[in-house]
Simulated scan of single mutants.
Amino acid sequence: MPLRSLSRSAPSTVTVNTVTTSLLTVQTTGRGFTDLTDKVASFLRDTGAKEGAVTAFVRHTSASLTIQENADPSVLEDLTTALSRLAPENAGWAHDTEGPDDMPAHIKTMLSGTSLQIPVAGGEMLLGTWQAIYLIEHRARPHRREVVLQFIGAV
């Protein structure tokens, strides 16, 4: 299968000339998905990003990041249901210091991950048509979450 270029600029190689890091604070409303796509795109515009990669990393053990469908909200509802079935509350977990949703939140984070890396070309993320970047809050109550954004590449 031949490879096709996704680069939107002429050079075939990119010299990394910048590493830019920013901290994004996200206020969640409790369990569920928060779309961060526009905030990451804004970070890239502010950075002057052209070619490279953007990394997002959530600094918590009971929230995670994912790339998922952004067209049909029922997808996010079903994913929430699936995660709850995989790590139910009140399942006899030893770790329940912060309540019955604490240990299940840690398991859900382990399953879904804390870091994403997205290629950037022509100043834009190379996400698919129906893809969006989401912070997943796994705890029942609202939290203030921190997401580190880092662009490495050419400006």
Rank of each mutant, 00 (worst) to 15 (best):
P2F: 11
S5K: 15
L6A: 13
L6W: 09
L6Y: 05
L6I: 15
S7F: 08
P11S: 12
T13I: 09
T13W: 03
T13G: 01
T18A: 13
T18Y: 00
S22Q: 13
S22T: 12
T25L: 10
T29G: 06
G30K: 05
G32C: 02
F33R: 00
D35T: 03
D35S: 11
T37H: 13
D38T: 13
R45Q: 14
D46A: 03
G48V: 01
K50G: 04
E51D: 15
A53Y: 10
T55L: 13
F57I: 06
V58L: 04
R59G: 09
T61S: 13
T61M: 05
S62E: 02
T66I: 14
E69L: 09
E69M: 07
P73N: 07
S74D: 15
E77N: 09
D78P: 03
L79S: 04
T80A: 15
T81C: 01
L83W: 08
L86H: 06
A87T: 10
A94N: 12
H95Q: 12
T97R: 08
E98M: 07
G99K: 02
P100F: 02
D102P: 13
P104Q: 03
I107L: 11
K108N: 08
M110G: 10
L111H: 07
S112C: 08
I118F: 04
I118H: 07
P119C: 06
A121I: 02
G122R: 12
M125I: 02
L127E: 12
L127M: 05
L127I: 05
G128W: 09
T129D: 12
W130M: 01
I133Y: 05
L135H: 06
P142G: 11
V147L: 06
L149P: 09
Q150N: 07
Q150C: 14
I152A: 14
G153W: 05
A154T: 14
V155M: 11
